[in-house]
Amino acid sequence: MEHGPMRWLRTLNRNKALLLMVLPGTVWFILFCYLPMPGAVIAFKDYRYDTDGFLASILRSDWVGFKNFEYLFKTEDAFIIVRNTLLYNAVFIVLGTVLSVLVAILVNEIASKKMAKIYQTGMFLPHFLSWVIVSYFVFSFLSVDKGVLNQVLKFFGADPVFWYSETKYWPYILVIVNLWKGVGYGSVVYLAAIVGIDKSYFEAAMIDGASKWQQIRKIMIPMITPIIVIMFILAIGGIFRADFGLFYQVPRDTGALYPVTNVIDTFVYRGLKVTGDIGMSTAAGLYQSVVGFVLVIATNFIVRKINKEQALF
């Protein structure tokens, strides 16, 4: 037993190169993540400012238990916003993954390298447009009197649609807009994974006379499955966080559409606009983190049960 500390030192010494490698990252995590982390207790306090500084303010503020969380649960709206957030994100994750993988495979298969490059650049563009710009663009389609869609409808003799007051269209609109903006960007990871696959697999398949389709199904997809699973588990962690711009700017903050566009993030934003309470906004963040955390653990557990190799941890 007296060799304990010595052995520990020796372990340290044996791992010193790898320890040095994680050093910069660890310093960063401590400074930018762990140092601020205790601040999350604000969620359980009635934050009152104290002139002795932030720490004193936290310490001297009263504990209020879960009071800051109440507004997220109290009314039936709370159910609606949670439902919206979860459903939209679930659809985004599933369709987003499928389409990103599909696009990655297609781009990879396109024979003309030059065209593939051009396509990829094009698909990337929406990622650089802010949601405000996207909302102008969507508006140019959906505007009641000048919108492209209504003009098309008029051309065919149909009645114009009041797009911004009809809730039934918005789930589709939001999904399409989100996929449109994200798929090009999302496909990059999968493309990298596909290109990174060891060529000898394909050569072996070729010799065995496998068709392209078989190659895709039997080699490509299984090879990139670990990445897909990881991205999926990670996305699950964010399933409680909605993209504010998508749900606020794109529907132009239209009240009539709230039943299908109000998500946790927009709800919190509107609710705290009047009072701007730090405790309540921290509470919302914590709520989203904890649910995400639980979901990630659960998903990972399930993945682990199915295939230990592919689990995240």
């Binding site: 009071k67 109440e70 507004y71 109290k74 009314t75 709206d77 903050d253 009240g255 009539a256 709230y258 109000n262 709800f267 919190v268 509107r270 609710g271 705290l272 606009k273 009047v274 009072t275 309470d277 309540m280």
Partner: peptide, 13 residues
């Protein structure tokens, strides 16, 4: 505060 946050969402709606 809780009620204000909730009512504000309804007012905006």
């Amino acid at each position: 505060l809780t009620e204000i946050a909730n009512v504000k969402n309804a007012v905006d709606e």
